[in-house]
Structures are given as C-alpha cells and as structure tokens.
Design a binder for these strands. Structure first.
Length: 644
RNA sequence: GCCGUUGUAGCUCAGUGGUAGAGCACUUCCUUGGUAAGGAAGAGGUCUGGGGUUCAAUUCCCCAUAACGGCUCCA
C-alpha cells in the first residue's frame, strides 16, 4: 500500500501501481471523464502513470494551466496525424502548446499548406479525434528510435534525438501517428471536441534565420464547442479594441504609401493627444527638476562612432546622406545629442544631477516585416531624458525615476504590466555588451537593490540588457496579445567615458558621471497605440480630442448652442457644435460612436431656462444643469486628469 | 529580411475574361425632429503600380509595392 496526499490535505491509502485515472474513477466517474493529466509530486505526467511510492497528487483538468497545456500539446499531435494523412512525406519538427493553443512546425518539401487547406485539416482532425484514439506511451532505446526516424527519412527528429540520452527517450502513438515526445498526453483524442486552426506561417528551424524555413500551423482546441465559440467571440472583441482600427475610426493617425512604411501621419485628433501627453510630461519633469532641451534630427557619423552605436546598430538606422564628403545620419536615439549638451559647459558636482529632457524625434529603420500599426514604427517621438549623476546619487535618482513610472501608470490606470530587469550575458562581453565585467555586476546589483527596496515586483531576464548597461523594461500586451516594451529605464556606465564627460568633484578631481536613460511614457507612437487599446478608444476627458459636443435639437437652437460653445472654448475646453440638419437621435448616435465624453443637448427647454442637458458617453441622460455648473464640472475633471 | 495571405469609392466589403456595385460617409433638397440610424436626389473608382498571355485583363500569369498573420530582429 502507498499513501497519496491530495491538494486539500487529505491522505488516502491505495494499492501500489495505481494510476491517477484509476484514483479519479474511484472518486467519481464524472471527475474521471474530465481528467486530462496528473501532477505527481509536482511533475506533470500521463493520467495512466502507475504510482508506486507515496506521493502528492493533483488531478489535472481543463481548468489547470498544466492541464490545458497538455490538452493543446496532444492537439498538436492530432494536427500532425491529420497533416501526415493529407500530405504524405511530411517531416515534423516540434509541436508545443503556447499561451493560447498550439502549433506544429513541419517541412512539407515541395508541397504548401495555404489557409484554404486549414478547413479540410480541421475536418480531418475532427474525424480522427472522434476515433477516441488512446495516446500510448512507449519507452524506446536510442538506437531503435534513430533507426525508426532514419527509415522515415526525418532528419529533424534525428537532430532532436542527438540531444537525448538512452533511457529518457519515449514515443507516443495515437491512431496512425507516432512521435518522439516526452509527453505527457491526454488519455485519448476523444476529449478534443472543438478544433480551430487559426493560421499558417513560416518559422525558421530552431528560430535561426540562417536555417531553413519550416511551415508552422497554429491552432486552438477546446473540450466543448461552447468554449471555442466564446474564444472566437473574445477574439472578435479584441479586434474592436485594435488600435489600428480605432485609430482610423477616431481620426487619430494614418499611413500613406507616398510617405512611407512605418511613418505615421498624426491627424488633428491624434495631435491633441500628443500635446496633452507632452504637457503632462513637461509638468511632471519640471517638478522633478528636469531641464528641457531641443536637438536636431540628424548628426554626423562621427557622433555615432563616438557613442558606439554605429558598429552595433547601423542596420537599424536609415542609411546616411553624404554632403561635402561628410556622412550624416538621421538620429535613432537622442542620447549622444544630450551628451554633447552636457559637455558643452564645464560641470561641477554642484550641477549634478543634471537631468536633460526632450520629446526627441528618432528614426529607426525597422525590418519591414516588423512594422505593426503604431506599436512598431520607423519615426518615433520619445519621452526621453538623460540624468547625469554621481555614483552616490545613483540609487536616489534611479528610485525617483521608478516612482515617476508608477505615478504615470496610476494616472492612466495601467495595471497589467511586468517590470523586467534586463541583464547582460557574460559570454557576450565585448560583442553585444561593453566589455566591463565588474561594472556590469555592480550596476546590476544597484538596480536590483533599488527595485527590491521600492517593493516593485519584477522579473529578471538574462541577455536583454542595452549594450551600455542593464535596464528595466516595462512590458505590456496589445489587444491581440502581442508583447511590447512600453517604457524603459536604463543604466549607462559606458557612454560617459566614451564621450569624455566629466565633472569636477568636491576634491577638485575630474570624474565621469553615470547616466540614466529613461522614457516612462515610451514613445508617443507606442504609448498612444497602447492607450487606444487600453481605453478601447474611450479616452478620459483630459485626453479626449473632442471633449464636448453640443447637440441642438433643431437648427432653431443653433445660435444658443454656438454661444455656449464660445464659453466652453474660452474656458479652454475642446468643444464643437453639431449643426447638421439631423435628428437628435442621429446626432447622439454619431457622437457616441466617436466616443466623445460629454454631449450637451440643447432644445426649447434649455434655451428658455438658460441650461444644457448633459449626457455622458455610454451612460445616457444625466439631467439638466446650468452652463456655469457644467463649466466647473468639466474644468475640474480636466485639471485633475481624472480617469473615467 | 524570410514564409504565407490580401490589395475594388473616404470607410467596410460584394463582384466579373467584354473598362464595375452595396451600405455607411460626403453634397444638395425636403423634414424642425427630445436622448444610439427620418426621407429623396446627386457626386465620387487608371479596380495598388509595372510587365506578360489574350481580339479583349480589375479578373489569368510574372515582378514590384503596401498592409495583414507569423518567424527573425528590436538601442
């Protein structure tokens, strides 16, 4: 007999060799039907695994992340089975579960799968699933495994086998399909009730762009059709929030073939948002002791040789223009320009920390395939600043910057983000990273300490640092689930030296300052793209391009509406009159769709009483009030930068 | 940059080997209407660009370009 302990703390005796599935059946048939896999002593295993020692057991169902991942991984095998039946001779690489679903990478030789084939594959998968094929696990010797795939002519699996030891190799077979796989898998294919193949794409073998490109088919599956329908509905909803769609509908930005890819045109409504964000930044930075500067969009090659950017990042810069034998580059970053402002005057420790801020315009030649709405562009406006400080001041300055981040995130109600401490990889010193091993360790420790002391949750990732130092990136997700760095806060112990930046310390010696690069609001492009999705286009009043729309019931009341409008405009409120010859229902509908926060309706009653009728976007009629009342409501809400 | 898909009116999209259509938006007129779409008329397109096949190409083929879905990249 062995003792099995359950998540609720219960411990029960069972015969040695019993499987989690058998245990589930002992509890209830209903549970057994739902069991996908089992976590035995914290390890995810097949539900059929015999347990021979005392163990802790958690039966995994669709409701567990590990359960879902197993379900999707098995679905990838089912996809492979369907593909093999449809495209003979196909060779498979790997087919893991991902955040939402799964994929399988394959080499189809001369054949291609197009999106129109996906429906047929779905049908085939469905047909195979309904056979309730059991996933059979088999331990196999390395030599047998090699000869199996050698005969099949599958060099990809042979490559996988190279990295595996005898004794740890297992095959899984369901129906006609056998795969090299460590598992675990769901009990049988019949659990997969709803299947959707979402897309087909190219993917480099082993993620290396020098390797052959394989075909990747993405899909998602569910235990019930209802859940698939809900998932598809959710995707539809996400699409409505997509900043590319909203940006067009709300007149925020546009792209034009004659301007160029990745070069957004900011329309009047978008420009208002830009200006409001800049006002916020200026106000916040001035209060925090920053000084504003302005620098040109281009600079000579020599500047980027000094900074060290050119050898590292030339490919990401627009090619130079040559004038009188001198090469000029469009700036891809503002830091070298700011360093030159630092060095333009002699500096004393009394001048530090010196904080230079600029909403700098940068141009980056991003790869064409990477451009993505406003989130990844080639012309960007960075909420940039560089803080030059002594080592002693570093922690205080770095903490103040982090506090500014948090303050901003509170204003915008940003809750879903991850702070990522990006470190260097010692193996890449001198290539990807400045070759200063001790300084790396020292500054990384300084940053980590600040984060811990400020109680900011963060994750550490190796090999993500800037070439001049470690950084903190704030990661966010777009409506369609793509991850982006929204903002960044970087330490730089290299450029000060490269630019020969110096200040005179108390002992009358020259010292090189540490530099903090920071951009809490990221770039206008990415930040506004993010805000569009974050607010689903319903900006808070202070950011709304149009804050108030006056809606006269008929043109008889246009004059009164215009006079109210004048008062609002004079109070600095962005207000417009809808004087079209439309009915009030139509005017309200159009204004609602444009997501204008306040509608003021004006008819006979209002003109007589000298009032307006207030309607808040999405909330309906809020009753009558006087013009002075609504004025003070609006101005208060705007100046507080109140969120909705 | 690579693989795949797509490109028709300002927007969303039908459609066809014989030079094009809907809804919304726009203009004008009628309607003067009280909290999410009143009615009528009109204007608007080198069917992304360039080549090819064909008596004839928006439609079929090739190239370019842009967007989209991924991969790779991301100071």
């Amino acid at each position: 007999m062995i003792n099995i302990s359950f998540p609720d703390g219960a411990v029960r005796p069972y015969d040695s060799g019993i499987s989690p599935m058998a245990i589930a059946k002992g509890i209830s048939e209903g549970l057994a039907k739902k069991v996908i896999a089992a976590s035995i002593n914290g390890q995810v295993k097949d539900a059929s695994t015999p347990i021979t020692n005392d163990a802790s057991l958690k039966l995994l169902t669709w409701d567990d992340t590990d359960g879902r991942n197993t379900f999707w991984h098995s679905s990838a095998h089912l996809l492979a089975e369907a593909v093999e039946a449809t495209f003979p001779g196909v060779k498979f690489w790997v087919g893991p579960a991902v955040d939402r679903g799964f994929y399988y990478d394959m080499d189809l030789g001369d054949q291609t799968i197009s999106e129109s084939d996906l429906l047929a594959l779905e049908k085939k998968m469905d047909e195979l699933a309904r056979k309730n094929s059991v996933f059979i696990r088999k331990e196999i010797s390395k030599s047998d495994a090699v000869s199996y795939f050698f005969e099949k002519g599958d060099e990809y699996k042979l490559d996988l086998l190279k990295g595996l030891q005898d004794g740890e190799i297992t095959f899984y077979t369901q129906g006609e399909f056998t795969d090299l796989c460590r598992g675990p898998h769901i009990p049988h294919t019949g659990l997969i009730k709803a299947i959707k193949l979402t897309s087909v794409a190219g993917a480099y073998w082993k993620g290396d762009e020098n390797n052959k490109q394989l075909t990747r088919v993405y899909g998602i599956t569910f235990p019930t059709q209802k859940e698939l329908d809900e998932h598809l509905l959710m995707l539809e909803e996400a699409k409505k929030r997509d900043h590319r769609k909203l940006g067009k509908e709300l007149g925020i930005f546009t792209f034009d073939d004659d301007i160029g890819p990745g070069l957004p045109l900011w329309m009047p409504n978008g420009t208002i948002i830009i200006e409001e964000l800049e006002n916020l930044a200026k106000q916040t930075e001035t209060a925090a002791g920053y000084k504003r500067v302005v620098t040109p969009h281009i600079a000579k090659e020599s500047l980027y040789l000094t900074s060290g950017h050119l050898p590292y990042y030339q490919e990401s810069m627009y090619p130079p223009m040559e004038l009188e034998g001198v090469k000029y580059y469009l700036k891809a970053m503002n830091c070298p320009h700011h360093h030159k402002i630092f060095s333009a005057e002699s500096r004393s420790y009394k001048d530090l920390p010196l904080r230079l801020a600029e909403y700098g315009t940068c141009y980056r030649y991003e790869q064409s395939g990477e451009l993505f709405g406003l989130m990844r562009v080639r012309c960007l406006h960075m909420n940039d600043a560089h803080i030059y400080c002594s080592k002693d001041d570093f922690a205080k300055e770095f903490r103040a910057v982090n506090e500014m981040y948090i303050k901003y995130f509170k204003i915008f109600g940003i809750e879903k983000y991850v702070m990522r401490l990006s470190l260097h990889d010692p193996a890449k010193l001198g290539q990807k990273y400045i070759d200063e091993p001790e300084l790396w360790i020292e500054t990384e420790n300084m940053v980590r300490k600040v984060l811990i002391e400020s109680n900011i949750p963060f994750v550490e990732v190796p090999d993500e640092g800037a070439f001049y130092g470690p950084k903190i990136d704030v990661q966010i997700w777009s409506a369609i689930g793509r991850e982006f760095t929204l903002a960044t806060n970087q330490v730089d112990f290299a450029q000060g030296k490269r630019f020969g930046l110096e200040y005179t310390n108390k002992d009358n010696h020259a010292e090189t300052p540490l530099i903090i690069h920071r951009a809490p609001l990221g770039t206008h492009e990415r930040f506004i793209g993010f805000l569009l999705e974050h607010y689903a286009g319903k900006f808070p009043l202070w950011l709304s391009p149009v804050q108030v729309k006056l809606l006269p019931i008929s043109d008889k009341f246009n004059d009164y509406a215009l006079s109210v409008n004048k008062q609002l405009l004079e109070a600095g409120i962005r207000s417009e009159v809808d004087d079209r010859g439309e009915k009030i229902g139509k005017k309200i509908r159009d204004t609602e769709l444009m997501k204008v926060p306040y509608m003021l309706i004006i008819g006979e009653k209002e003109v007589t009483d000298g009032t307006v009728s207030v309607r808040r976007q999405g909330k309906g009629d809020a009753g009558q009030c006087s013009v002075s009342e609504i004025l003070s409501t609006l101005t208060a809400e705007i100046s507080n930068r109140q969120s909705n």
